[in-house]
Design a protein around this nucleic acid. Sequence first.
DNA 1: ATAGGGTTAG
Length: 723
Amino acid sequence: MQLREGRSLLLLTETCKSLRHAYQIHAQIVVNGLQRHLYSLSKIFSFFALFGCPESLGHARLIFSGTKSPNVFMWNTMIRAHSLSELHHEAVLLYPAMVAKARDLPNNFTFTFLLNSCARLAAPGPGFQIYGHVIKLGFEPDIFIRNALMHFCCSSGLADCARKLFEESSARDLVSYNTMISGMAQMCKPHAALSLFQEMSDSGIWPDEFTFVALCSACSGLNDHGLAKQIHNLVYRYLGFVDCSSGAHLVGSVIDLYTKCGEMDMARKVFSAFQPVKSLPALSSMVSGYARAGKVELARQIFDRVNKRDTILWTAIISGYSQAGRYDEALELYKEMEKSGLKPDQVTLVAVLSACAGLGALTVGERINNQSLRARFFGRDAILVTAVVDMYAKCGKIESALEIFRDVPDSQRTTHLFNAMITGLAQHGLGETAVSVFREMESTKVRPDEVTFTGLLCACSHSGLVEEGRSLFKLMSEFYGINPQMQHYCCMVDLLGRDGKLDDAHDFIRTMPFEANSVIWRSLLGSCKLHGNVEMGKIASAKLLELEPDHGARYVLLSNILATTKQWEEAGRVRKGMEQRGIQKPPGWSYIEISNGTVHQFTASNYRSHPQKEEIASKLRDMNSRLRTAGYAPSTVDVVFDVDEEEKETIVSHHSEKLALAFGLLNSGPGEVLQIMKNLRICGDCHLAFKLLSKAYAREIIVRDTARFHHFRNGLCSCKDFW
DNA sequence: ATAGGGTTAG
C-alpha cells in the first residue's frame, strides 16, 4: 500500500487492533518515510508502549529513541508505559531527560503519571523534586495533580503533608476522599479514615466502590465486629446490592474485613452468596481467617478445593498450620508448594522459618535462609530478618542469631527484632548479653515494649542477675510507662526465689495488683525445692491445687508433700481423687533432627515400632550401664517437690528425650552436637542423666524444653541446675 | 485509584 500523506496514515493508525497489525503499520510508516507525521507516529507508538508486554515496550523504546524530537504526548506515554510495567525508577528517570530535551513543557498528565510512580518508589526523594517542579510551573491548583500529590504523600508515610494538601484544597472530589481514606488505611490510621468518610458523606459526596474498599482495609486491623457489620450495612445503603459482577474487589474486601475480626460466619455468608466465582484474595482471606480462629481443618478444606493456587494462598495455609503449632505439616505443605513450581516470596519464607523455629529444624531453616539470601530478600524486610534470628535462636545456634543481628543496620532494627534477639539470649541463659543488647536498643531509640521486658526479666532470672532484674522492673513502669503484667511478676518471683529470697518473692506475690496464676506459684515452688523450704512449698502447692484442680501433676505434688509430713491418710485421699477423675500427666514427646535434615519424633517409652528398635534398645542399655558407672542414683529429694510435668516410671524410665538421645547417638558421627526438642520441661532425673551422659560419651547435647535451652557439656549444664 | 498471606513472649 502506498501511503502518501498524513491523513491516510492517521486513519490507519486509529484502526490498529492487534500487536501484529501494529507492527505492519509501523513497517509501512518506515518504508514510506513518514516518521515526520509525528501525531500519527505517536499514536502507533502509544499502542506499543501501552500494550503491556516487555516485547512491545521494547519496540516502543526503539521508536522513541529513533524520533528526533518527541512531543509531550510521547514523553508522557513513555512515563506512563514504564509506570504501568512497574518500572517506576525508569519512569522517574525519564523526567530530567524530558526537561532537558523536550520542545514543550511538561503538562498535568506528565505530573500525574510521574507522581504515581513516585508513590510506588521506596524513597520519597524523587517525589519531593517533582513536587517542587509542580509548584514552580504553577500546577498546584489542578485537582488531578493535587490528588496525585496526596497519593504520593500517603504512600511515603507523609501523613501531615497529605493532610495539609487535602485541607487546603478549594475543591475536593470523590477521588480526593478516596485517596485520603486509602492513604489512612496504608498508614494504619483507621479512625482518621472513618472520620474522613463521615466528612465525605456530610459534604454530599456519594461514596463509590473504591471508597468502601479503602474503608474496609482501613478498619480491618481494628478487630471490631460491630464496626464490620456497620460498614457492610453502609455498603448496602449507598451502593445497594453488590455482587461479583458489580464489585468483585469490594466483595473481597468485605469478606476480608469479616475474617480479620473473627466473624467467620458472616465472612462465609458473603463468600458463598455473593462470590459465585471465588477470587484468590477472598480465598486467601477465608483460609487465614479460619486458621486464625483455630479452625485449621476448615481452612484446609477451602484450600484443597482450589485448583489454581498462587503464592499468597499457599502462604496463607502454610502459616495457618505454623500458627496452630502444626509445624511438620506446615513444612510438608511447603514441600508440596515447591513441587508445584511456585516460587516462595518473603512472606512465605517467614511462615516456613517460624515452622522451623517451632520444630528446631535447623537444617531446613538454614536452607530457607540461604534461599532468602539468594533471592535478595534478606536485609530489605525487617520481618524476614526477625524470623531468621528467631529461627537460629530457637534451633540452638545463638551465635549465628547474634551474627545476623549484628549485621542489621540501626535504621532497620525494629522492636520485634530486638525482642527476638533478647528473648533468644534469655532462653540460652546469656543474661549479660541480653542486657547489653537492651542498652543498645535504648541508645538507638527503638522503643521497648512489654515483650522486651518479659525477655529481659526472664534473662535476668535465668542468669541470676537479681539486682539488674529489680532495676529493670522499675525502669519498665517508671520510665517507659509499661504496666507490669502477669509474666513480668512471674519472672520477678522466679528471680527472687532462685536467689533464695523466698520471703521477698512471697511478698511480691501478695502485693501484686492481681491474683497470682498457677505459673507464679509453680515458680515459687521450684525455688522452695531448690532451697529446701518445705513450709512455703506447702503453701505454694496448695495454691496450685486450688488454681488447677485438673492438672495431674499438682495432685502428685500435694500427695508427696503430705506424705513427707506423715499425713498418710490425706495423701492417699488426694491420690485416689486423682485416679477417680481420670487425670493423667500430658504425654511427653521429643524431636531430634539428624544431619540429613530429617526430623524424628519420640514419645515416652514408645519406640517398639521404630525401624531401629533393636539398636535403640541396645543403646539404651549401654547408656544405663555408663550411668551406673558414673554413680547415677535417682534423686529422692526430687520426689518431695515433684514439679515435673511428666510421669516417672522406673529409674530406667524412657522419657522421650532419652529415646531421642539414643537415636541421635546411633545416627551421628563422633563429636557431632546433638539437639533435642521437648514439649514439656525436662525432669530432674533426665537432667542429671544428660549431664553424666554428655561426659560419658564426650558429646555436647542441647535440649530445648518449654522454658529454655540446656547445653550439656562435660558433665555440666548451662542452666546451672535451675530451670 | 481498588483486594489477599508474615515476625517477638506467655
